[in-house]
């Protein structure tokens, strides 16, 4: 049975049939057979977590599992985040990583996003210690983790805000806007921090010419991802079927 066998992987809501050798790692099937190169490889011992994907809703290291073992499984990779029901075009975690500068070289980012997603699915209002533990299987060499923690807090707050705005259940913290820990902390203690602009909490909101405004990014995302529906209600059905909804 060293011959290739046919397996079915449902990745980001789309069912794929691929022929794999038994020894083929899931991460290679995802990256090379399905050309979803957002999932990365950073080590050979299962320590770095760059290859983290959600399998049936749980974060796993796709370099420590054979593709054949995922036959029939539902897989979520970073490429599927924009289509999740809670994404509203771009997922709050993705937005959080950008707003809180939760990435530098970007290599660990997809894995971090997956671990963050799994955490918020389980615990919508995690404290810092919980967040740190949830990403402790993902190594980052650039950020020192602090802004990744902030990014996940940002997403938690954003999701709570959206839930509150939708008239849904308000979370324990009242779905309040950015908590002190979750909000952008000014980089300086000296009192000049509030003079920086480009942030809502800095100097009175983004300027008119703010090129980083979310709507613009959404438009771009739509254009760059032809079949990705931006209307969250359209994608909700697919995502629910995937079993990884909140």
């Amino acid at each position: 049975m060293t011959d290739e066998r046919e397996i079915t992987l449902t990745v980001n809501g789309t069912e794929h049939t691929v022929e794999v050798e038994p020894r083929r790692l899931l991460v290679h099937a995802i990256r090379e057979d399905l050309d979803l190169t957002g999932t990365h490889i950073g080590c050979d011992t299962g320590n770095c977590g760059a290859c983290t994907v959600l399998k049936d809703g749980e974060p796993i290291k796709s370099c420590l599992m054979f593709a054949a073992q995922a036959d029939g499984a539902e897989i979520l990779t970073v490429e599927g985040m924009e289509d999740l029901p809670e994404a509203d075009g771009i997922h709050p975690l993705q937005e959080g990583f950008r707003e809180e500068h939760g990435l530098q070289c970007g290599y660990c980012t997809p894995g971090m996003l997956m671990s963050g997603k799994a955490l918020l699915d389980e615990d919508p209002d995690p404290d810092e210690e919980t967040i740190r533990d949830a990403i402790s299987g993902n190594l980052c060499r650039c950020t020192g983790y602090q802004n990744i923690v902030r990014s996940i807090e940002y997403a938690a707050d954003e999701l709570a805000d959206r839930a509150a705005a939708d008239g849904g259940a308000v979370t324990a913290d009242g779905g309040a806007s950015a908590s002190p820990e979750g909000g952008h902390e000014p980089p300086a203690v000296g009192g000049d921090a509030d003079t920086f602009c480009g942030r809502e909490d800095c100097c009175g909101g983004p300027s008119e010419a703010d090129p980083f405004d979310r709507e613009a990014l959404l438009d771009d995302a739509e254009g760059g991802n032809g079949d990705a529906a931006v209307d969250s209600t359209d994608t909700a059905v697919d995502a629910d079927d995937r079993g990884d909804s909140v």
Binding site: T37, R98, T109, T195
Partner: peptide
Amino acid sequence: CGHGRGGMGEEVTRKEDKRFITGRGNY
């Protein structure tokens, strides 16, 4: 600050982030 053009001293969010957070980086 205040001119909002993203010059010196402004906390401009990064132009490169979009491709990295959406899995579109090219390593």
